[in-house]
């Protein structure tokens, strides 16, 4: 196991390096730059600014300087758009926001999706099952960019219960709607995944053995069926974790939460190179981390898997 962690970490570094280089090259090959605007700057001023940020250097040197900054000072560079902020500042401001609502999204989708899927499987072909399946289909018909405005319409405009957006330091009333909007479709997927894998597990031979042992149904479900039934859910979670934690562009845009999600697209549109690099690296790193965690979790759940 330790061996695997070391091995995976060793592979992660070159992976991230390739990610940096590819992103850098792609970014800089797109036309325009951070300082192109409808009213172009005088050439001399532009040259001065580019010199200040080192954008006048050849690309390989910029990549090297960027990596050097990360390795020596953990400095991910300045933002060219939010000129009083570094990428570290932006992540420090945006990540806690998305982490907070992301954590709630994960809690909600698991707390609702898993039990619902299990109950639906245990009570297959009863009204509870139909209700759970119906709910998950409905949730798929309402993706978050539709859910968001509908929630605002209901809870802000009609009922007047919740503020229609903003973050305000993460007070609960600002968090409810983003969490629901983002969690619903994941919840639906998890319900369906759990249900189908639970059905499969309940039909498996070792569950039959457990029944023959004379174990109570509760023990059979919790002790024998739950873990294997959660395997597909766990592999589904890894990318979802990363996506939810780094923030949803749509949710951040609709609810103006100030989370990290908006920076993904905005940084690309603005050619805010270092911010783009920063969020790409963050996502890449988290993806590698969560894949590792999921694999470790797999090993814990299923002793047949050895690393």
């Amino acid at each position: 196991m330790l061996n695997m962690i070391i091995r995976r970490t060793a592979v992660a570094l070159p992976t991230l390096l390739i990610l940096v280089i590819v992103t850098f090259v792609l970014m800089h090959s797109a036309p325009g730059g951070p300082f192109t605007s409808e009213k172009p700057l005088p050439p001399q001023v532009l040259a001065n600014i580019e010199a200040k940020y080192g954008l006048n250097e050849p690309l390989y040197k910029q990549i090297f300087m960027y990596l050097q900054g990360i390795v020596t000072e953990l400095d991910f560079g300045p933002s060219y758009v939010y000129k009083d902020r570094t990428v570290n500042d932006i992540i420090a401001q945006g990540l806690p926001v998305t982490l907070t609502y992301g954590a709630w999204v994960i809690v909600v989708m698991l707390a609702v999706g898993v039990p619902l899927g299990m109950i639906a499987a245990i009570k297959q072909n009863t009204w509870i099952d139909y209700l759970a399946v119906g709910f998950s289909i409905l949730a798929d018909l309402l993706p978050n960019f539709i859910m968001g405005p509908i929630l605002i319409l209901i809870f802000t405009l009609w009922l007047g219960w919740l503020p229609g957006g903003g973050w305000n330091g993460g007070q609960w009333e600002y968090m409810i709607m983003p969490v629901i909007a983002l969690a619903t479709s994941y919840m639906a997927s998890i319900t369906r995944l759990t249900r189908s894998s639970m059905l499969e597990v309940l039909r498996s031979n070792f569950i039959r053995t457990a029944r023959a042992k004379g174990l109570p149904e509760r023990t059979i479900i919790l002790r024998h069926a739950m873990k294997p039934a959660l395997m597909p859910v766990i592999s589904y979670l890894s990318p979802v974790f990363v996506y939810v934690i780094t923030g949803s562009f749509i949710v951040d845009a609709i609810f103006s939460t100030g989370g990290l999600g908006t920076y993904f697209t905005n940084a690309a549109f603005n050619r805010d190179y270092a911010v783009m690099m920063g969020v790409t690296l963050l996502t890449g790193g988290l993806t590698i981390l969560f894949n590792l965690l999921v694999d470790l979790l797999y090993g814990w759940i299923d002793p047949q898997i050895r690393y």
Binding site: N205, A212, K227
Partner: peptide, 23 residues
């Protein structure tokens, strides 16, 4: 019935699949 099950036990055809792989 559960009490009776301690008197009547069963063994199955596929020996490996009938054992919980996680225990």
């Amino acid at each position: 019935m559960r009490r009776v099950r301690s008197d009547i036990q069963m063994i199955f055809q596929d020996p490996l699949a009938s054992l919980n792989p996680r225990m």
